[in-house]
């Protein structure tokens, strides 16, 4: 894509996204991290826009920046006694290394491969003008089954989430150790 605006937008948005993402790793406060996550999502949405994916960009903002971030905030609130820091685990070193490695692999691949990609006129001719219509057709056309299954997925994710957070009848008086003891005989001689 040669349009200067797009190029600039790409680099700016990329920078914002990458820096924010990296900051999530670096920040020590979990709540700040969630805020930055929202920034990443928004930056992503911007990048999506540069790819002419307007519908997805909107969906990204709605679902990720809106819903999922809120979920994270809820999660933080629902675990009041847990620590709020964004500390590293025992495996921070390997994690960082592996993250770097996979990133490097992808970057190398990206620049190493001679992609079969559209350029110039052909790229301009690929019109992503009415993505919503096409996506809608796709969802109800060839991918209708996936669409239906996704609904089942959502339904049972909902059900699952509810089930998991519902406490069993015996209100929690037991400690972890007692639980552990009982646990050894699941459904056993209680």
């Amino acid at each position: 894509m040669d349009s200067v605006g797009v190029v600039i937008a790409f680099y700016v948005l990329s920078a914002i996204t990458i820096v924010s993402a990296a900051s999530i790793f670096l920040l020590r406060n979990l709540v700040h991290a969630i805020v930055l996550l929202v920034v990443v999502f928004l930056g992503m949405a911007g990048l999506f826009l540069t790819l002419s994916a307007d519908f997805i960009a909107v969906a990204q903002i709605l679902i990720y920046a809106g819903a999922i971030s809120v979920l994270f905030v809820f999660a933080v609130m629902l675990t009041p006694l847990a620590s709020r820091d964004n500390g590293n685990s025992l495996y921070a070193g390997p994690g960082l290394l592996l993250g770097g490695a996979i990133a490097a692999i992808v970057v190398v691949t990206a620049f190493d491969v001679e992609w079969n990609q559209l350029t110039g006129v052909a790229l301009e001719q690929r019109s992503f003008t009415d993505t919503i219509e096409v996506i809608g057709n796709q969802l109800l056309g060839p991918h209708v089954l996936a669409f239906e299954v996704a609904s089942v997925l959502l339904l049972f994710a909902l059900l699952g989430a509810i089930v998991l957070v519902t406490d069993p009848n015996n209100e929690d008086g037991t400690t972890a150790e007692e639980e552990a003891g009982k646990d050894t005989a699941v459904g056993g001689s209680e």
Binding site: S89, Y91, P94, G95, L98, A101, I102, I105
Partner: peptide, 19 residues
């Protein structure tokens, strides 16, 4: 018993196999 040991192993596997 640490979950991230497991995920790290997976990642390591992926990285190594790819390389």
């Amino acid at each position: 018993g640490h979950l991230q040991a497991y995920t790290s192993m997976s990642m390591l596997g992926v990285v190594v196999v790819i390389i």
